[in-house]
């Protein structure tokens, strides 16, 4: 049996609101093998972001279990990296100082020279060499998101959690970032959960695509993506991918509560 790095079992969660509890998750099951990439899609407001906070240990579920590396998640851990739709770079720091921020928390005794060397290595991989001393406001949206990716990976986390990181970018920039993401995975081993609204993105990046139902969310459908690891954008225009996208689109319709003929 393959050991799963991320294991979410029967998670239920509700938020307390003024008009009573609002259930957001109801029977969520997710398994992600070590080194693999899980893309999670689902209708708006179905609790996908709650899922990222659970895996990051930022909150505890009402019911069910979240496991990382065979250990129950009970709080934040240093082996997690996070990236959001908003790159949340600190404007008072240069790009390089933004990237090394997690090392200041995770590895307080690491020398500054070592931190810089590690950050430069990542900046080179994402094509930001030469921009390390710029302020975030001097960079384009795509470049800021690249820097944000570097920051979430600088401390070599086991798990990368991404909440719609490419959602605010234009289409061509987004495709560039997909390829950067693919190259980063090849260079550094990490297990990923990606929350996205973009089905094409989920197929291009994912080893599996998990469709969540409408709120309260449960795991509705899991698709294994059998494409080569070194896939290029061209693969998106092949019949197998078109079929996958079609199935996923139908699953989203079901999740939204609309009638479909299931293929």
């Amino acid at each position: 049996m393959i050991e799963n790095l991320i294991e979410i079992k029967g998670v239920k969660h509700a938020y307390a609101t003024a008009s009573g509890p609002l259930p957001v998750l109801d029977g969520l099951d997710v398994s992600v093998p070590e080194g693999s990439f899980a893309a999670v899609v689902g209708p708006s407001g179905c609790g996908k972001s709650t899922l990222t906070r659970l895996v990051a240990g930022l909150m505890k579920p009402d019911e069910g279990e979240v496991w990382l590396h065979g250990e129950r998640v009970r709080g934040p851990r240093k082996t997690v990296g996070m990236a959001f739709q908003n790159p949340v770079l600190l404007e008072w720091r240069t790009i390089i100082d933004n990237v090394i921020l997690p090392l200041e928390i995770v590895a307080p005794r690491m020398s500054r020279a070592d931190r810089i060397a590690r950050a430069m290595e990542l900046l080179e991989m994402v094509g930001l060499t030469g921009f390390e001393n710029k302020r975030p406001s001097e960079l384009s949206g795509g470049m800021r998101q690249r820097a944000s990716l570097c920051r979430s990976l600088v401390h070599k986390p086991d798990v990368l959690i991404m909440d719609e990181p490419f959602g605010a970018l234009d289409n061509f920039t987004r495709e560039d970032l997909w390829q950067t993401m693919r190259d980063l995975r090849r260079a550094e081993p990490f297990t990923t959960i990606l929350i996205t609204h973009d089905l094409t993105e989920s197929v291009f990046l994912g080893d599996q695509v998990i469709v969540l139902s409408g709120r309260p969310a449960r795991t509705q459908y899991v698709m294994q993506v059998d494409l080569p690891d070194d896939r290029t954008l061209d693969v998106l225009y092949t019949p197998p991918v078109a079929d996958m996208l079609h199935i996923l689109r139908d699953q989203i319709k079901i999740a939204q509560g609309r009638d479909v003929e299931v293929h």
């Binding site: 990051a56 934040p76 997690v80 949340v88 600190l90 008072w92 921020l101 928390i105």
Partner: peptide
């Protein structure tokens, strides 16, 4: 909240988050 979460997810203390993020911001 994202500003807090990038450090909180790494187990940073409230004081560290205040010193490194909230205060300068």
């Amino acid at each position: 909240p994202e500003y807090r979460d990038i450090l909180r997810a790494l187990g940073a203390t409230r004081f560290t988050i205040f010193r490194k993020i909230a205060l300068p911001k």
